[in-house]
């Protein structure tokens, strides 16, 4: 039986994976997007389709996230407008890079290598953050450096900082290139840039970044869809699971201390990097066992971490009810 060009088993698996991603995204506030593209790469989707579908998924989840944040009014529209302009240019460039690499026949390997580096770097950063409780980041030093560039026109931002429009455009387009190349929303880069670089309060940075991701995600979806490089059925099914999972993950933040599980999240990101690396090695040397192991690793790690969140939440819920 097939619905939306997918078998019933595939639909079940994608809804389940979406649920897992949603729990992680809802709980940690990031990580939704940069598991989808690697997972699609690992199960054999061509790089442009994996990246395009990843971006469409990011767009869908950020619409839901933006709707949830809309009442709080914690958005800097000036910053969002300038960064979106830069990100849109960057996504267009990133998309062209992916299709150029696809024409050269090296898109899968290049994107996989970049993902291994990215997941490794972000995983190590989160691991260090978990161990030092965030005190290792020298926020003041970075913010002073960025604000010292006085290239007009300058824009005043919430939090009292004044930043050059050119700095915002360059940072926005750099994140956009990464977004267009890898199919990620870029929240894991946007948030540190705005908090540590521009000195913006965390709540406003979170609201502004989700708006930027929504608009740039829509643009990225539009650009990739023109090349027919989005598997709409996979995106639709993933969204069904992730929208529900995000509500579970958000609810879990009220019961479980994020710092207790952040270490597992870092290990999961590192496992994702190892899985993509193993997949590439298996393709080059034709080792089928390694390919199966990489699939099990990327899905297994995500299931284990989201399972730990749900289990800890239920335990906390029972404790709070005194049973």
């Amino acid at each position: 039986m097939e619905i939306l060009d997918l078998g019933i088993v595939s639909i079940g698996l994608f809804v389940g994976f979406g649920l897992v991603i949603g729990i992680l995204f809802g709980f940690f506030g990031m990580g939704g997007s940069f598991l989808v593209t690697p997972a699609l790469l690992v199960i054999g989707y061509p790089a442009p389709v994996a990246v395009g579908s990843g971006l469409a998924f990011v767009f869908g989840t950020s619409v839901i996230g933006a709707l949830r944040h809309r009442d709080h009014g914690q958005i800097s529209y000036t910053l969002a407008a300038v960064m979106i302009l830069g990100m849109s240019v960057g996504i267009e460039v990133g998309t062209r890079v992916v299709f150029l690499l696809a024409d050269l026949g090296s898109a899968d390997s290049v994107i996989s290598v970049v993902y291994v580096g990215l997941l490794g770097a972000v995983g190590l950063f989160v691991l260090r953050d978990a161990r030092t409780d965030g005190s290792a980041v020298r926020t003041g030093h970075i913010a002073t450096g960025v604000q010292a560039i006085e290239l007009p026109p300058m824009v005043s931002l919430p939090g009292g900082a004044t930043v050059s429009v050119w700095v915002m455009l360059i940072l926005g387009s750099s994140i956009g290139i990464l977004s267009g190349c890898l199919g990620v929303g870029g929240g894991f880069l946007l948030l540190p840039v705005m908090i540590y670089g521009f000195g913006i309060p965390t709540a406003i940075a979170a609201g502004t970044s989700i708006l930027q991701i929504m608009v740039s995600g829509a643009f990225g979806t539009f650009v990739y869809a023109q090349f027919n490089a989005i598997d709409v059925s996979v995106v639709a099914v993933l969204l069904v699971g992730s929208a529900f999972g995000a509500r579970i993950g958000t609810g879990a933040t009220r019961l479980v201390n994020e710092a207790d599980i952040r270490g597992y999240f870092a290990v999961m990101l590192l496992s994702g990097g190892v899985a993509i690396g193993s997949k590439q090695i298996s393709v080059v040397y034709g080792i089928e066992t390694l390919e199966t192991a990489s699939t099990a690793l990327i899905f297994g790690a995500a299931v284990l971490v989201s399972g730990a969140i749900v289990r800890t939440s239920i335990t906390a819920l029972r404790k709070s009810d005194g049973r």
């Binding site: 839901i64 709707l67 869809a225 709409v232 529900f244």
Partner: peptide, 24 residues
Amino acid sequence: GEFGRAAATVGFVLAEALVLYVGY
């Protein structure tokens, strides 16, 4: 045509996200 297909994809994802947000 091509632009329409791209716009339809964006519209489809947007509509699904709205339905899921309200429904859930």
